[in-house]
């Protein structure tokens, strides 16, 4: 890795930091696979961007590119104003990473894990203990501080991973599938943590394939497919742009669903299958011929899930 010239302040070189991070034309290949394929993405400072996409869309590779744990073949990356990978070390000093895979030191206690990372992030000796106590409090793990990680529940371990990423009070936090595999209650707890980050003005990039998570937490959503962003905007704007404001949903046997799809296609309206139902999007623009043909339809508001399935063709988890 190239030498990392050091700015003398904590601010990025341009001093503006209007963007938390920026990727332009980024390509990353693994053999014949183009995992990231001309990715353009901006995350405004102080906002939460949800990176939404099916498995294999390139979300985790994008996360690794931002920490220089993968190096792009083409394109430019800036994180907190620092070019990456050239000045990645400076950027990493001011960011926290919550990985998808639990990589805690399971033989150490909660407190010891945080103490190790307080040092890795170069916190000064005088402030280390306070930083560890604060991180314990943020993650609501103060009462388990001296428990070995081995003995924690899955939810507590996730909270510790987040606390570990926050111990140095980063300006940017990368969350890679932060709630995957967790039960709804723990997921709510972690969402509260991310909410707290946003209210503190921390920039958050969160990859997820849970639609609800993106809707609940993200200021902006980027839908990724095959290594590039295929849609970008606020959850509401994305929904209106791609799925309209209303959806007609019809339940029935396969023959009925096929018939509904034919009617919608004839009127130029997009549809999507959801198990035993078919949803006709942009229902507000549906001509009378469609509404008359679908007397059994249920009207509901459009959702980001409709957009996701429409754009990626993937089933939703």
């Amino acid at each position: 890795m190239p030498a990392t010239p050091a700015p003398s302040t904590t601010a990025p070189p341009d001093g503006t930091a209007s963007l938390g991070l920026s990727l332009r034309g980024v390509v990353k290949t693994f053999g014949a696979l183009r995992a990231v394929d001309g990715l353009d993405l901006d995350v405004r400072a102080g906002t939460c961007l949800g990176l939404l996409g099916p498995n294999g869309a390139g979300k985790s590779t994008t996360m690794r590119l931002l920490t220089a744990q993968a190096v792009a073949d083409e394109g430019t990356i800036e994180v907190l104003g620092f070019p990456v990978p050239e000045q990645s070390k400076q950027a990493r000093a001011q960011m926290g990473v919550v990985p998808q895979q639990d990589n805690l030191d399971i033989e150490l206690t909660v407190r010891q894990n945080l103490q190790v990372f307080a040092r890795l992030y170069r916190l000064p000796r005088a402030g280390r203990n306070a930083a560890v106590e604060r991180a314990l409090e943020v993650a609501q793990l103060t009462g388990r501080a001296d428990t070995r990680v081995d003995d924690l529940s899955g939810g507590m371990r996730r909270r510790l991973l987040i606390a570990r990423a926050l111990v140095h009070r980063p300006r940017l936090v990368l969350l890679d599938e932060p709630t995957v595999g967790l039960d709804p209650q723990v997921r709510q707890e972690l969402w509260a943590l991310v909410d707290a980050l946003r209210s503190e003005g921390v920039t958050v990039l969160m990859s997820t394939h849970y639609i609800e998570e993106a809707e609940r937490l993200a200021d902006d959503v980027a839908v990724m497919s095959a290594g590039r962003v295929i849609a970008f905007g606020t959850p509401t704007a994305l929904t209106v742009e791609h799925a309209g404001s209303r959806v007609l949903e019809v339940y029935g046997p396969p023959s009925r669903l096929l018939e509904v799809e034919r009617v919608a296609a004839a009127a130029g309206l997009p549809t999507r299958r959801t198990g035993p139902a078919v949803a006709v999007l942009r229902a507000e623009a549906a001509p009378a011929a469609v509404t008359d043909a679908l007397p059994d339809a249920v009207v509901r508001p459009s959702t980001l899930e409709d957009v996701f399935v429409l754009l990626t063709g993937e089933k939703v988890e």
């Binding site: 904590t10 409090e137 943590l193």
Partner: peptide, 23 residues
């Protein structure tokens, strides 16, 4: 959740091989 969760702290200098990183 009362504790503040972020601030703007960072080490002032980062060189290629740092004793603090080794430590």
């Amino acid at each position: 959740m009362s504790a503040p969760v972020s601030s703007r702290t960072a080490p002032s200098r980062l060189r290629r091989i740092e004793p603090a990183a080794l430590g």
